[in-house]
């Protein structure tokens, strides 16, 4: 393979890493840090994409305002879901899982009924490609990488330096102890779900402009998001970066050398091998 093609593959891999990190951010907060068994996160992501689509196509919004409105709306959906579906089952992960799986089917079929099954698409305002020494990166992919890393830094700062963020960490370490310290678990959980779902909507809004959107697009996001946070380590934002980079590079580079099947195989094999030696994930805490 030519050097240009190899370099292009590496760049493809980095762009894919950015996509995976963006997807994993919301899940990191909700599932990984707060321990809310939100398996329907992929469907929330999908709803975010459809919100952006309809705001652009039907309401005439441009991309950024549509994204902002969709983010706020989906964040509010997250608060509703937490209050109605997850709070009653806090501390009962089996029931929470059942509820979450039911939500997948309900949300998917509502969207299928309302929007139909045909894939839809909308364009990113970030058009054109950038040529660097003969290799190409589309601006819309580069923006995803920038946004992904930007949100990652913001999330890190939020968790590290705000009262609510610190409360989230406390809850993730010891829920009862946090409550005894006067932390309002309900409020913090609601904030976490708002932020987690809002991040899913941001991810979906950008990624939906790259690929088509459909009622079943959430399963891909959930699968990749979970793979990233398990590989990187539960409860770790830095781990989400590492996990995203590893899986993104595998998915970007391996198909160019072998085949699309090999990438999937190697990706999951890498997760298994790493977990064998480090069960808490690369950056997770024991």
């Amino acid at each position: 393979m030519e050097m240009t093609a190899i370099a292009q593959s590496l760049l493809n891999g980095l762009a894919i890493s950015g996509i995976y990190i963006l997807i994993a951010l919301g899940l990191t907060l909700v599932l990984s840090i707060m321990g809310i068994v939100q398996i329907s996160h992929g469907e929330i992501y999908m709803v975010g994409a459809y919100c952006v689509y309809y705001l652009i196509k039907s309401a005439g919004f441009s991309f950024i305002p549509a994204l902002i409105v969709a983010t706020l709306f989906v964040g509010c959906i997250g608060v509703f879901l937490e209050r109605v579906f997850f709070r009653p089952f806090r501390g009962d992960p089996d029931r929470a899982m059942t509820v979450s799986i039911s939500l997948i089917l309900i949300i998917q079929n509502i969207v299928l009924f309302l929007a139909g099954g045909n894939p839809k698409s909308y364009s990113s305002p970030f058009t054109g490609v950038l040529f660097i020494f003969g290799i190409v990166i589309a601006w819309k992919r580069l923006i995803i990488v920038i946004v992904g890393f930007g949100l990652l830094v913001l999330l890190f700062l939020f968790i590290r330096y705000t009262k609510t963020g610190q409360a989230m960490l406390a809850i993730s370490q010891e829920r009862e102890g946090a409550a005894l310290q006067g932390i309002n678990i309900d409020f913090v959980s609601a904030v976490a779900m708002f932020l987690g779902c809002a991040l899913a909507a941001v991810a979906a809004g950008f990624i939906g402009s790259l690929f088509s959107i459909s009622p079943t697009m959430g399963s891909f996001a959930l699968m990749k998001g979970i793979a990233v946070i398990i590989l990187g380590g539960l409860g770790s934002i830095a781990g989400a970066v590492i996990g995203g980079l590893i899986l993104g590079l595998i998915d970007g580079v391996l198909p160019a050398i072998t085949s699309t099947y090999t990438a999937g195989l190697v990706g999951f094999a890498a997760i298994i091998i790493i977990l064998l030696f480090r069960p808490q994930g690369i950056w997770g805490h024991e």
Binding site: M1, E2, T4, A5, Q8, S9, N12, A15, I16, I19, L210, F211, S212, F220, D251, G252, V253, L254, P255, A256, S259, T260, Y261, A263, G264
Partner: peptide
């Protein structure tokens, strides 16, 4: 090349093809 169905990111396979 016959690609695995399901994904929509064709950059890797197209990079190979266009080479």
């Amino acid at each position: 090349e016959a690609f695995k169905m399901g994904g929509e990111d064709f950059y890797p396979i197209l990079t190979k093809a266009l080479a």
